[in-house]
Amino acid sequence: MDGASPDSRSQSNRRALSDIRGERASGLRERVIEGGLFACAAASVLTTLGIVVVLFMEAIPFFFDVSLLEFFGSTQWTPLYADANFGVWPLVGGTLLVTVIAISVALPFGLLAAIYLSEYASERARKIFKPMLEILAGVPTIVYGYFALVFVTPLLQQVIPGMGGFNALSPGIVMGIMIIPMISSLSEDALHAVPDRLRESSYALGINRIQTIWYVTLPAARSGIVAATTLAVSRAIGETMIVAIAAGQMANLTMDPRESVQTMTAYIVQLSTGDVPTGSLEYQTLFAVGALLFLMTFAMNVIGQWFARKVRNQ
């Protein structure tokens, strides 16, 4: 042993502990950097604040002119007509109709796909199918809009009589396909988190696999499935381009999926593509509808996140 001994260090710069008293390892720099990083993290909170302030600053003046009673009480939405009506129900109705269609496609497919991936698929099949399903969520919505308009609607028109060129069904179905991976991936995580001992004790009772999935595994994973569905609903409510292209621009309070409807998001797009003078009542409807849209999706997100956290904490 030579060389590394502390005593043999010829010109050692090592000092005694008493010498580093009061000294800091670049304390100021560290604190400045931490402050800068914190500012960046806090920027996300400012974004939320910005959304709320912008939406409500423009929406509140709108409600000086149009009472909340009319906004939520009337069933006519004709803000651009000479005889303007500001009942938001046709837009909300259109949004809900498309959302219901989308979820009735996405939920069964997403859930069954999650069951396949979690309960049946080999590790290899899982590794191939999972990223492929995720591609569905990565395709731009404008592409789905085109697909709904040019491919799915003509197809549906051949099968279903009275199907309009613009309708709620086609964009609803296509949107449903787009959000399948949202449901499947969160649900699969939840199914995966169900401990094997639950399944095994069910098999040990002589219960077969389907019944085990139905009565044991799915109920145990219900928080995750609820979270997935809620977040998917929020996504469907906020989805814009598919409906703007394929559902039409007619605010129409109807339950008939063959008819053209206008969603809240499609209305925002319609108004933005036209020339609406800043500060006009029409301009303010943009933010009033936007604020309502934000509140609806925000509520769904809060509920969804709450369930998702429940899964993570299990």
Binding site: S44, T47, T48, G50, I51, V54, L55, L231, S234, R235, I237, G238, E239, T240, T265, I268, V269, S272, L286, F287, G290, L293, F294, T297, F298, M300, N301, V302, G304, Q305
Partner: peptide, 14 residues
């Protein structure tokens, strides 16, 4: 987590 769920069109309004 909540921001990630805000519809993109709302970002447009922002």
């Amino acid at each position: 987590a909540n921001l990630a769920g805000v519809p993109s069109v709302v970002y447009g309004l922002l």
